[in-house]
Design a binder for these strands. Structure first.
Lengths: 353, 353
DNA sequence: TTGTAGGCGTTATCAA
DNA sequence: TTGATAACGCCTACAA
């Protein structure tokens, strides 16, 4: 004989069952003081037995707090930020918040929908990863309303609350590492300049060249179309040059791995004929042959910083300036000294197995 | 001069601004009939200008519908089910539902918390991937309350609403493929038997051996501890046997890739000395050297079926029996005929590049 | 220590 | 075509 509450059980039912008032039940449930131990016991017992779950809806409607933070994410298939999510959940968990995640697939419309949904559910705060809509979250608009923190926005924005890896520095690291290995002609397979990370990494690449007194040669730069495709054609174009580069810095690991493969199918050996370095240090990077040298972003830190910043905003504390997390060079096997009359291959950077 | 509504804007404010009643505004917002075009226009304009977002909380409290489905997920870092999520979101999106995702990291406590949270938010339905708590979702308990669909539960359960790949069949495919290649001593690196998928795949392995008239040899079976670790030691133990197997079927690709590596460090060539086949077809599989043969689950179908089943349950339609989605053999380069006096290597199965 | 009542922002049911 | 008004389930003064 199943309980005839077709409707879910409420605090009223509970009160009736326990023979007390709703306020008493409420006090018990939120373990407030001023309630006798025995009543507390009894109510708790009955609640447990009845399998009662309070309605977060009703509760949040009155308290105006949901203890939920919305996480607008990229795709589940993207390895890159898995650790970001984990560390966000970690921090939020400790702070007593739940994280609800929703993918935006880096499409403007979906991102807008995701944020709008979070808003309508009155989450206490929002984190958006690789936002396409970054520009829409400018400070004044966001001042009133739900705090939003951006991780690695894809567009320029004057939004105050942004956490990102220092892409300029990272690209600089990668490039100057190649230079240290003795390379003088260094190519770059990048992203169209409308993407902020694309611009930043190109910039770091240029700065490194300049710092080494090397001329920036536009013919050595191929700007692909997406962060997922274009590594093969990019490498192909570079290697087909009259004077091809002896090393190539790719926008990310995915492109780099494709580039690696194309180099091989074109009969070049990596790193003997051409060095390749990527960016991100995705899981794949250490599995490919040869294992890919790359630049690692401290994704855990990225997530943690974002979470902490959001917590500050939620609590009404003001937080510091936008944060740039440092990157780290990861030397593996896809990079080496240039072929032919060798340069002066000095070892350098950080080795991570 | 920013609007002095520290509190978010409500339907009342809107009504005041538009000079109509809340009910009219409500009608407009839900585009119900029986409201004059001009009032509609006006209200809409004002709402847009004010940047009004209705409170889903209040709305759902009265309608008793959230149009949200909760997705209890494994980890963001797990490649395996990325496609599952995508297809779930796809189906749900078309059906007018939002998907909120929350990771349970395959820990009982967290899974319980996740489901409880979803319950308290009165989501319309729940999907749990690789549930550890499967047994707790038995039919009677779930009858009243929010419908739950399980994808690939880790434990046995009498819950009615379960979608999973046919692991027995998949393991059978893998094993009989190795047999067709001519192998007679086939090892298995598996999972402890408390994991349902572990049992199923072991079972498929046994059945395939039996069907081919090969004896099941327990010494050729190594049961590791987790789905992530143990591939190396497993392979090591098998290859250290007096009469090592000429082929090994691993519980999943992660283990297989580790096994691959260990085989190499032990001086065995793959597939010349020993064949290795995995399970899942994660992205990594086609990148390792040699590219890993494996069994693919139709993850998109998994997600779609689960989503559709949940929609049925939400709508009160009864749905069919638990579903087992078929698997597909993927031949790559880590498998070949056994060494030495060759068997009769017949080609077979499906080739996927 | 406990109970009463008002309100959170919407929708839904009646009247008007 | 519109407008009061009673829920929805809970929290929180304020009273008792």
């Amino acid at each position: 004989m199943k309980p005839k509450w077709r409707r879910r059980m409420t605090i009223n039912n509970l009160a009736d069952l326990a023979g007390v008032s709703v306020s008493t039940v409420s006090r018990v449930l939120n373990n407030k003081p001023d309630v006798s131990p025995e009543t507390r016991e009894r109510v708790l017992a009955i609640a447990a037995e009845a399998g009662y779950t309070p309605s977060a809806l009703a509760r949040s409607l009155v308290t105006q707090r949901t203890h939920i933070v919305g996480l607008g994410a990229r795709t589940s298939s993207d390895q890159w930020w898995a650790e970001v999510v984990t560390s966000i959940e970690q921090v939020m968990h400790e702070a007593g918040f739940k994280v609800f995640l929703s993918n935006h697939y880096m499409e403007a419309a979906r991102e807008r929908a995701v944020v709008e949904t979070f808003r309508s559910w009155q989450v206490d705060g929002i984190i958006v990863v690789t936002s396409v809509l970054a520009a829409e979250y400018s400070a004044p608009r966001v001042q009133r309303g739900i705090p939003i923190v951006l991780i690695h926005p894809l567009r320029e924005t004057d939004h105050h609350y942004v956490i990102q890896a220092d892409d300029v520095q990272g690209a600089h690291q990668a490039t100057s590492y190649l230079i240290r290995l003795g390379h003088r002609r260094i190519g770059h397979v990048g992203l169209p300049s409308e993407y902020l990370p694309g611009r930043d990494r190109l910039e770091g690449y240029r700065q490194a060249l300049e710092a080494a007194g090397l001329a920036y040669d536009p013919s050595l730069v191929v700007l692909g179309s997406s962060p997922e495709k274009g590594g093969e054609t990019g490498m192909e174009r570079l290697l087909s040059l009259p004077k091809p580069p002896t090393a190539v810095f790719c926008f990310n690991d995915l492109l780099a791995i494709d580039a690696l493969r194309r180099a091989r199918t074109m009969g070049r050996r990596v790193p003997d004929d051409v060095s390749v370095i990527g960016y991100d240090d995705i899981a794949l990077a250490r599995y490919v042959e040869p294992a890919l040298s790359t630049v690692r972003q401290d994704t855990a830190a990225l997530g943690r910083r974002a979470a902490l910043m959001l917590l500050d905003l939620i609590a009404g504390r003001e937080t510091g300036a936008p944060i740039r997390v440092e990157t780290q060079l990861v030397e593996r096997e896809s990079t080496g000294p240039p072929p032919g009359p060798a340069g002066t291959p000095k070892k350098g950077g950080t080795i991570v197995p």
